[in-house]
């Protein structure tokens, strides 16, 4: 086995649980990319809220069953939201969302569901703390961490997903009982509300903060051009 030089060593994630502002930043990037003609202050706020919503399970964990990164970070939340929206807008004769909010509402609802899945659940699923993807069916946390590279000696190396014994697996940091996720709401002395915890997260947040006014300028210009045509 050839020694792996530093920057290409894989699977060395620190214990990282991306803070809520990072999920919001990814949600804002999706809003900028996908809202298009529905882009305005209200729709961006709705999509950003959808990206942050799963982190509310920190609050629920204090009062009921479940736990942080479990109760609302389960795949069932985005899957049920997608199914409900699909039923309402495509299968039912008259769509409640379209009747009430028009095509604007339908577009915003779809982008919000995307933000819920990709930003709200996704950002945490790809971190070492992981999410309980199948809660409440299973208490196990899953973390999609690893590396994917091409090597002149080893060919394609991929460690995000392991295929063994006829099954497909990702790494798991434990179950609800064994894997404690630090919460700023937990009783104790000092409380921390984390904003960003790595340089990359800082860059993602900065990128979202720049993309937002840039998209505002783009939409203002594009819409005034269309109005003239």
């Amino acid at each position: 086995m050839v020694a792996v030089s530093g920057f290409m060593s894989i699977g060395l994630d620190h214990a990282i649980m991306p803070p809520t502002p990072v999920a919001v930043a990814v949600g804002v990037l999706l809003a900028v990319a996908l809202l298009g003609p529905a882009f305005d202050r209200r729709s961006v706020a709705i999509v950003a809220a959808a990206a942050a919503a799963p982190d509310l399970d920190l609050v629920f964990a204090l009062v009921g069953p479940g736990g942080p990164n479990a109760t609302l970070h389960t795949a069932f939340v985005p899957v049920l939201a997608t199914a409900a929206l699909y039923y309402d807008t495509r299968i039912r004769g008259t769509s409640r969302v379209a009747d009430r909010y028009g095509p604007y509402g339908v577009r915003v609802a779809w982008v919000a569901v995307a933000a819920l899945a990709v930003a709200g659940v996704g950002v945490d699923a790809f971190s070492s703390e992981g999410v309980a993807l199948l809660y409440p069916l299973s208490d196990r946390y899953y973390a999609i961490v690893g590396g994917f590279l091409l090597s002149t000696q080893d060919g394609v190396v991929q460690t995000y997903v392991t295929v063994a014994d006829g099954g497909v697996g990702v790494s798991s940091p434990g179950t609800l009982d064994t894997h404690a996720i630090p919460s700023p709401l937990a009783p104790g002395g000092e409380r921390r509300f984390r904003i960003v915890e790595t340089g990359e997260q800082a860059v993602l947040v900065a990128t979202a903060l720049v993309a937002l006014p840039a998209k505002w300028l783009v939409e203002r210009r594009d819409r005034s051009t269309e109005a003239r045509c």
């Binding site: 050839v2 792996v4 920057f7 290409m8 994630d13 996704g122 790809f126 971190s127 995000y160």
Partner: peptide, 20 residues
């Protein structure tokens, strides 16, 4: 021989950015 490694994604967040 020297091992040249061409990373595509390393760590969870890079794969997440890629998929996003």
């Amino acid at each position: 021989p020297v091992d040249r490694r061409f990373p595509i994604a390393v760590r969870g967040w890079q794969l997440h950015v890629l998929l996003t």
